[in-house]
Design a binder for these strands. Sequence first.
DNA 1: CGGGCGTTTGAATCAAATCAATTGGAGTGG
DNA 2: CCACTCCAATTGATTTGATTCAAACGCCCG
Lengths: 257, 257
Amino acid sequence: MLNTASPITAPALPAACHAALAVDANQRSSQRIADALGLLADTLAPQRRVVRAGDAVYQAGERFASLYILNSGFFKIVNLAADGREQVVGLKFRGDWLGFVGIATGQYGCDAIAMDIGEVWVVRYDALLAACAARPALMGMVHEAMSREIARDRDSLMSVCTLPADARVADFLRYWAESLAKRGLRTDQFTLRMTRAEIGNYLGMTLETVSRSLSKLARSKLIHFAEKGRRDIHIPEVNALSDFIQGCLAPSSPMLQ
Amino acid sequence: MLNTASPITAPALPAACHAALAVDANQRSSQRIADALGLLADTLAPQRRVVRAGDAVYQAGERFASLYILNSGFFKIVNLAADGREQVVGLKFRGDWLGFVGIATGQYGCDAIAMDIGEVWVVRYDALLAACAARPALMGMVHEAMSREIARDRDSLMSVCTLPADARVADFLRYWAESLAKRGLRTDQFTLRMTRAEIGNYLGMTLETVSRSLSKLARSKLIHFAEKGRRDIHIPEVNALSDFIQGCLAPSSPMLQ
DNA sequence: CGGGCGTTTGAATCAAATCAATTGGAGTGG
DNA sequence: CCACTCCAATTGATTTGATTCAAACGCCCG
């Protein structure tokens, strides 16, 4: 088998450099999202819809007609199988697009549920295609959004398949923080919009295991809870989470207890 | 939470009807793929490239320039993380497109490896976009392919997150058979192109567990192995696999041993 | 024929699920 | 304001499904 794995690692740089580069990348990312939303607003004047926690942007089985772009809020994508299994298959933030699965099948494949107050922009798919013909930049945005979704889905699968429970929870927090960072939001402190049960469902484990993993992360000072309630989370150093994940994978892992 | 789950189930029909409908759907699917490949060949005259088992169509990190359409063969998509974890994140067949992840990032995110002799068509992305401007049908094909990939990725995640090992292996066989059916190939008998280790990697379990699950399925007559070698698999009744998966989920599952 | 790889199977171990009890906030209404 | 309920979360004890470790088998190929 042709297996010439050449791991793509950044060249060795001081940690401060890494941090600076990361901040820079996040700023660019945040700007890119703002630009994309701006272009969208200018060229399509999309209908704006305000949603509250629990509202469905669309539901599985509805006829596909529009794509949705998130301007604000936090959303989960819930797949429900014919046999009743229910599974959170994705999390979406500002700048993300919803509803791509409908393009192929003509109907939405999942429920898209708001986890907080937010605003979604509704764009009819036929109108979008027409507009794209005139503006290639718009088409590029659509493709980029789909492309990114595919990449993210693969990372999810990878996480579920290769990481033990503790590392999966850590990776989930890392991903959430990274998503916030890319949108110019503070990442050291944020509130989880999901219950332990929802997180567990997303990560393929039980709510008890999520709770235990969070407790363990807190005990080892990788995260802190706000005094009141355990949904506000403080992450002093996101990189420490990545290190923890690595540690879980190491053959003779000097595991934190 | 707005959780009005209305499971999308087909209306009650005799089994024969279901089978007939399924056959019909598969024929349409097979035709759709043939049409799509035809259109592609006519409008773009893509470069054709023959690959052999183990060949890489592209590798993670290479600069993105082209998409690849599979005319024949079986391919796996392998994601490799910076820390060395290696994970099969997708399987691809005739009619599928490869390389979408590169659109957003400018480089391929995974290795795409042939598991058999096959033919891929190479289409430069810029040329494709240009052609799409003139032919909306072409653009529709691209979007459909991406859309389907997203849908499939979600199903994968769902399978890994919600099914026990035995059911996951059954679901894998069911998926493979279905993929063949949609391409007009025989589904009652086929040869797995993957080792137990690869299947296990894809499904998030060890090769021993895959082997045990296959043995159990064989013991309960849901599958049969050809006399020589255990890579040729005979599935007398694909629906029985679905029933088995359901059985694994039932609260008081009268599990087959 | 012998070596190498993929596969099967068993026994021991372990991580996570399950079962169960308790705590802690948020919200309600007397 | 407090008592009350309800639900999310925590934590412990136990069970179990899957992994790990180990041995043996079968097939392919030089």
